[in-house]
């Protein structure tokens, strides 16, 4: 477990919460994508998705390292990226629910990457303008990677949406399943207000336009249901995250305090 004093500090510091939120999104999405490694439908695409998982892991690490540095500076207690990733429990993770849902089939996986990647793209574009220092540097680096993730996943959404009858049907189903998890990304919560609050309606509009364009190109009807699930950002997750963390954190939990 994370030291109680660090835990309490995080609860009071919105900047740290925001960094953890960004980092958790990247890490959990990376975890899900990495589960495909060795099991993809086409060798080249296995490699491509693993590449994306690696990018996302790199983004998560940059953000955790930055958060750990700030925590160390502000509390005087030395904190590491691994403590933040491996020693927090479900309720302390701040990723959006969309990131933690199981992979489903290849269609669901590429669609999730498209929906979330597009959001990250517009978000990081804003962060390039609004953030400063380390966070701006991370945004500058990440945006290049995310640009590719969006292009790759959008291509797949179109290809599968407009491929065969079966692939189309599977994409319709995936869209139906994932759609109600998209709203949460676009509704800023308290710790997001400070930095990007003013731009959130712009991000939302840009995201909606991008999604509508790609869905249309892939012959996919835009969903109309607007009831949205939420809670992840504030630590209220689906049942899936507990299993994910149990697996991911196993060694650090079973053998506490060791170097690996």
């Amino acid at each position: 477990m994370l030291q109680q004093s660090i835990k309490s500090f995080i609860q009071q510091d919105q900047q740290i919460q925001y960094l953890l939120h960004l980092a958790d999104n990247a890490l959990i999405l990376s975890h899900r994508n990495s589960q495909w490694c060795g099991h993809g439908p086409i060798l080249e695409q296995d490699i491509a998705l693993t590449n994306i998982a690696l990018d996302q892991l790199g983004q998560a690490r940059n953000l955790y390292q930055y958060a750990a540095l700030l925590i160390t500076e502000k509390t005087g207690i030395s904190t590491t990226e691994d403590q933040l990733a491996y020693l927090r429990d479900v309720g302390e993770f701040k990723n959006c629910l969309l990131a933690e849902l199981p992979n489903g089939d290849w269609g669901q996986t590429v669609l999730r990457n498209f929906l979330m990647g597009s959001y990250q793209f517009f978000l990081y574009q804003e962060l390039q303008q609004l953030a400063s220092g380390q966070l701006k540097a991370i945004a500058d680096k990440s945006i290049k990677e995310i640009t590719y993730h969006v292009r790759w996943s959008a291509d797949w959404v179109v290809r599968l949406g407009d491929g065969t009858t079966e692939s189309h049907a599977r994409m319709v189903q995936a869209l139906e399943l994932l759609w109600s998890y998209t709203g949460e990304m676009l509704e800023p919560c308290d710790y997001e207000q400070g930095l990007i609050g003013t731009q959130s309606s712009y991000i939302k509009a840009a995201w909606e336009a991008k999604i509508a364009a790609v869905l249309a190109e892939g012959n996919l009807v835009h969903p109309t249901n607007d009831w949205m699930q939420s809670g992840g950002k504030k630590g209220l997750h689906t049942e899936h995250l507990g299993y994910l963390l149990a697996e991911m954190q196993f060694l650090q939990r079973a053998y506490p305090g060791l170097e690996w």
Binding site: L27, S34, Q35, L54, L57, G58, R61, E81, D82, W260
Partner: peptide, 23 residues
């Protein structure tokens, strides 16, 4: 072991390694 690597650094190394093998 990708999903169970004990540190983020080890995870990145392992993921990249397995990807190399695919290459």
């Amino acid at each position: 072991w990708i999903t169970r690597a004990p540190s983020l650094r080890r995870k990145a190394i392992l993921l990249a390694k397995v990807q190399d093998e695919a290459g």
